[in-house]
């Protein structure tokens, strides 16, 4: 039995979310004795693959045609690797990368897939997976039956795997350029320079909602508190829709799912769609001037106050 972990890299090494996928794979392997392999896909990625090898043996698909993560190309490589290694399970972190590339790969392999997994258990030899539905109002226990079971796991639900004592080998795999569809062309990535950690990777997340009306205001309060606490800045859907905050910062059912040690919600009312993205944080603090805001129902500590007064005071006292 072999488990293939699809490694998402950041140009240097394994992304933190993928370490959670490694953790899931290790837990499954500890039960069924499967061998674990990581698949790194890209161009000129040998050095990155050597870093990823700290977490397990690496298969490296390296070719000019794989420079950018275009679904048709990457899915073809993943499907080939799964076939060649007779993978009994394929997994990755539930990021927009996997939701694009890996779902297509699972389609090529016969469509056996569960996404956004937050836990697992065994029924004899059968792997049971837990995943949220209905914006987290329901947890379903599901099972997969079919070729090449494929899973994406929420990095908020599994700890980041630790590196091995010594790195494992990196093995290059053949990429047959003739088999890779090249119709889709990559046109670049526009992202605002973000000096703060990603919301999915930070210990502390400070999120701002409807209370903030401009980008400057968001920075002045939410950004400043995030910086003071060396945390990430996040937001709810409203500010992204209004163009005040870039979409990479959105926490919620359709944005990113986070579970930091501390989540501070500033002027966020607490729509179900937002709660779905943060309610598993270890400690939740809510500051809102509406005492009936639903955010207080999921918070550990609630302060009814105007964020424009409370945040400067917090900044002052945390200095």
């Amino acid at each position: 039995m072999r488990i293939l972990v699809i490694a998402e890299t950041d140009g240097v090494g394994l992304r933190q979310g993928s370490r959670s996928a490694v953790q899931f794979a290790r837990e499954v392997a500890a039960k069924n004795g499967a061998e674990l392999q990581l698949l790194v896909i890209g161009y000129d990625q040998r050095a990155v693959a050597e870093q990823v090898a700290a977490y397990g043996p690496v298969l490296l698909a390296d070719a000019p045609t794989l420079e950018h993560p275009i679904a048709e190309r990457y899915a073809t490589v993943i499907a080939q690797a799964a076939n060649n290694t007779h993978a009994s399970l394929i997994c990755a972190a539930a990021t927009t990368y996997a939701k694009d590339v890996l779902v297509r790969a699972a389609g090529l392999l016969g469509g056996t897939m569960a996404t956004e997994v937050v836990g697992h258990e065994w029924s004899g030899d059968k792997l049971l997976l837990r995943r949220p539905m209905y914006a987290g109002a329901v947890t379903a226990t599901v099972t997969l039956s079919g070729p090449f079971p494929t899973v994406t796991v929420r990095s908020s639900a599994y700890p980041a795997a630790e590196p091995l004592p010594a790195p494992e080998p990196v093995t290059a795999i053949d990429v047959d350029a003739n088999l890779i569809p090249v119709t889709t062309q990559y046109g670049g990535l526009a992202s605002k320079a973000n000096t703060r950690p990603d919301v999915t990777e930070a210990r502390i997340v400070v999120s701002g909602g409807r209370a903030f009306k401009t980008t400057e205001e968001f920075e002045q309060y939410v950004g400043a508190l995030a910086d003071r606490l060396h945390g990430a800045a996040g937001t709810s859907r409203v500010l992204v829709d209004a163009g005040i905050v870039p979409n990479e910062l959105q926490v919620g059912q359709t944005g990113k799912i986070v579970a930091p040690e501390l989540y501070i919600a500033l002027g966020i009312s607490g729509a179900v769609q937002h709660l779905a993205g943060m309610k598993n944080s270890k400690v939740i603090v809510a500051i809102n001037n509406d005492p009936d805001a639903p955010i207080f129902e999921v918070a550990d500590y609630g302060l009814v106050a105007d964020v424009r007064e409370a945040v400067p005071e917090l900044l002052d006292k945390l200095a």
Binding site: G187, A190, E248
Partner: peptide, 14 residues
């Protein structure tokens, strides 16, 4: 234009 975790990615496809 695609909304990804890292920003807006652009693809051209037939």
């Amino acid at each position: 234009g695609r909304e990804t975790d890292r920003g807006i990615e652009t693809l051209t496809l037939p």
